Amino acid sequence: MRKFILAASAFLCLQIQPLVAEASNLVAKVSISQQTMTVSQNGIVKYRWKVSTARKGYVTPLGNYKAKWASKNHRSRKYDNAPMPYAIFFNGGYAVHATFDLKRLGRPASHGCVRLHPDNAAQFFSMATANGLGNTKIIVTR
């Protein structure tokens, strides 16, 4: 009976191991000076995208954050119901989200959020929600 329990335990551990591997670390590093976001998973760079951060008179907060909540079809209550698709919120009302103002990507243009091309925002949203928001870190540097 003891051998059976040990064998069953070993089998269950092998079945659970892939789940642990899937709970990887996802890190999005936003550089305000370069207007880019570099996305790494398990320490391996997966993407580097142009972004728009806060324009003059607004602030994108610097720091290390964990993703707090996600909203696929969010609209801003603060800025005239403006669309914020694929939003990953990291600090209060600040989020990484899609923009349709593509000509401004690569330079400051937002009210403080980190704005991405819609395809890139959808990819990041998918990665963050699959990875788990608690395992998704957003780092904003000057």
Rank of each mutant, 00 (worst) to 15 (best):
S52C: 10
K3S: 14
T53Y: 04
F90W: 04
H111A: 02
R115G: 14
I16N: 11
N120Y: 00
Y86R: 04
I44W: 07
S31M: 07
S71W: 03
P83C: 07
S24H: 00
W69A: 03
G57Q: 07
R2T: 15
Q15V: 13
P118C: 03
A21M: 11
S40M: 02
A95D: 04
P61W: 07
S40K: 03
R142L: 08
T53C: 06
W49L: 02
Y58K: 09
C13W: 05
A109M: 05
L102S: 13
V59M: 07
M1F: 12
L14P: 10
A109Y: 12
V59Y: 08
K103F: 07
R77S: 13
T53F: 02
A130C: 05
W69C: 03
N91A: 03
P61M: 03
I5D: 02
G63P: 04
Q15T: 15
T141M: 01
F124Q: 00
L6Y: 14
F125G: 00
S33F: 01
V51A: 06
P18A: 08
M37Q: 01
H117F: 08
A10G: 08
R2Y: 14
S76G: 05
V30A: 06
N131K: 03
K29Y: 06
Y47C: 04
S126N: 15
K50L: 13
T129Q: 01
C113P: 15
P83L: 10
K50E: 13
F125S: 02
L26V: 07
H117R: 00
R2E: 14
F100K: 07
A28T: 10
T129F: 00
F100C: 01
T60N: 05
Q123R: 11
H97M: 06
P118W: 03
T36M: 02
R115C: 11
Q15Y: 13
G43D: 10
V140M: 04
A82R: 03
N81C: 03
G106C: 10
R107N: 10
P85A: 01
A95R: 12
Q35D: 13
A23E: 15
H111R: 06
L102T: 06
